[in-house]
Design a protein around this nucleic acid. Structure first.
Length: 498
RNA sequence: GGCCCUAUCGUCUAUCGGUUAGGACACAUCCUUCUCAAGGAUGGAAGCAGGGUUCGAUUCCCUGUAGGGUCACCA
């Protein structure tokens, strides 16, 4: 459990380019980044595209852009240049596994020579049979080791005949693999429970298990930080380090991110792609802060952290062991907090981004938008709140509302009064008179508007005057206060509506 | 099913044997010169169960239970 803070830590994030960056991946990348940065070491991005079938066009771009959006910039490996194009830096490349095939082949063969691996010629069909048979016999699943017994001569004959084959790791029959997980403490597995994993596939590509070990070693990775789903294959990796005689890195398996039903966070139950959150108007600072706190906290009661502050405060010792539910409501709260930190200009362009076309087509859009910001910041938590509630809460700022039932203008205290409606109308007629005499330059000051209207509320009652005023301006029973409305709409529009 | 991991309010979590078990989100109530929002105040809300160890366990150990992960020529 000892972390030597004097030495530089090298970490990596090694996603496979299957389409998009998962929020769980973002957190893994973040923790790895924080560890490296805190020690003054390096964080590198490597692409694990060893499954030809699953590799998706544009996958690398999506991952690097998502990471860059979040502010996690690799020191080494795959990253973006100034123009946003994919580039590679570092002296241990290439950093895309499909470009390192010869290396994996060489090491797989080295393992065979040393007797730690063997050729396997079993067909998928036979493997399937073995699997069902072992299940029926209630044996632990896994390869039965048939090809392990092949003599060198038999192997040579098959190789000569170009029989399709893979290379399998030869796991010891007895013994155990014990390691000190940086988060969980001591973890151990019996070798008898570990399968003879395929290392090199018949298409010449390595599996994850071979590639990750070879690359982490050559790329000088000191801390392997990855999701908990990898914990049960760690013995295979550790054993490979031993076979090669390489120094082992430290391992840290992060708890999983969960759906609200506590299953592994999945696409089915909501958004999982980082870009989905970007598109919904979540700020990178908010997503990062939120995700950082899923499984980690500084130990005190602070909750708002910038990336830089996280670098200073983060430590693996404080990472939790149990999975964390990805709770959107908390994320929304974070987002609102960060929205409030935006400058007026930034917030304006943010809002503009989510305004529907119909709003932008309005004549007064450019004029009204800046004045709308003050009320909007209190009412939205994310960009999609604008689009989702536009009709009800925002549209009336740009288009004059239709008041279908004039009785909605009557404040509740006058509802039973037969003259309620005429009275209400007369009150706001008076307000209109007063407002029409208010100098133009006073309209930029909400308080000044209030000052001239206020005496009337003393005279006729608060709700009696303010309610109909507000309803006539907004056409809604719920809205910001009437003075705010006046300020936002502007003199001309206000007089038109009352 | 085998193996592995995990277990404090609904959710994220603090507590490194002794606390009125703290905070945040969410929720409820109240205040905040008309409504709503924001803000403020207050409140409800938790140690999975059973055994140990100990003067004392949420905390350490064991068992059970529950949840999750993993058992591919996918990562």
């Amino acid at each position: 459990m000892s972390e030597n803070t004097n030495t530089q830590i090298v970490t990596r994030f090694a996603p496979s380019p299957t389409g998009y960056l998962h929020v769980g991946g973002l957190r893994t990348a973040l923790y790895a980044y924080l560890m490296a940065k805190k020690s003054g070491g390096r964080f590198l991005l490597r692409i694990e595209d060893t499954d030809q079938a699953r590799t998706v066009e544009g996958g690398i771009e999506n991952i690097t852009h998502s990471l860059a959006w979040a502010g996690i910039i690799p020191d080494e490996g795959i990253k973006l240049d100034e123009n946003g194009a994919i580039m590679e830096t570092g002296h241990n490349g290439p950093y895309i596994q499909s470009e390192r095939l010869n290396l994996y082949k060489k090491y797989a063969e080295e393992l065979i020579e040393k007797g730690h691996a063997y050729y396997c010629f079993c067909t998928p069909e036979r493997l399937e049979e073995v699997k069902t048979q072992r299940q029926a016999d209630k044996l632990p699943p896994g390869y039965d080791g048939l090809c392990k017994t092949l003599s060198k001569e038999e192997v040579d004959v098959k190789l000569q005949a170009s029989e399709k084959h893979v290379i399998r790791l030869s796991i010891p029959e007895v013994g155990a693999s014990v390691f000190e997980d940086q988060i969980r403490g001591s973890v151990s597995f019996q070798y008898s429970d570990v399968d003879d994993q395929v290392l090199l596939k018949s298409d010449g590509f390595p599996t994850y298990h071979l590639a990750v070990v070879v690359d982490d070693h050559h790329m000088e990775v000191t801390h392997v930080i990855r999701g908990e789903e990898w914990i049960s294959s760690t013995p295979k990796h550790l054993y490979l380090y031993e076979c090669f005689g390489w120094e082992k890195p430290l391992f840290a398996h992060l708890p999983l991110l969960l759906n609200s039903d506590r299953s592994k966070l999945s696409k089915r139950q909501g958004d999982v792609a980082v870009m989905d959150y970007k598109d919904k108007g979540y700020l990178p600072e908010a997503l990062l802060n939120f995700v950082a706190f899923l499984g980690w906290n500084p130990g005190d009661e602070r909750e708002l952290f910038t990336l830089k502050e996280l670098v200073e405060e983060f430590s693996l010792e404080k990472v939790n062991k149990s999975g964390a539910v990805f709770n959107l409501e908390k994320l929304d709260w974070y987002n609102h907090e960060y929205l409030k930190k935006l400058s007026k200009e930034e917030f304006e362009s943010y809002v503009d981004n989510f305004m529907p076309a119909i709003a932008k087509e309005s004549d007064n859009y450019k004029e009204v938008l800046p004045r709308l910001l003050g009320t909007l910041i209190e009412r939205i938590e994310k960009g999609t709140d604008i689009t989702d509630t536009y009709e009800e809460n925002i549209s009336y700022f740009f288009t004059k509302p239709n008041i279908q039932d004039e009785n909605t203008l009557v404040w509740k205290s006058l509802k039973d009064d037969a003259d309620g409606l005429p009275k209400s109308k007369s009150y706001i007629a008076e307000v209109r008179e007063i407002l029409s005499n208010l100098e133009d330059d006073k309209w930029s000051d909400k308080e000044a508007i209030k000052d001239v209207v206020w005496p009337l509320t003393d005279k006729y009652g608060r709700g009696e005057v303010l309610w109909p005023l507000r309803v006539s301006l907004s056409g809604r029973e719920k809205s910001p206060d009437p003075f705010e409305l006046c300020f936002i709409l502007g003199k001309e529009e206000v007089l038109r509506r009352i």
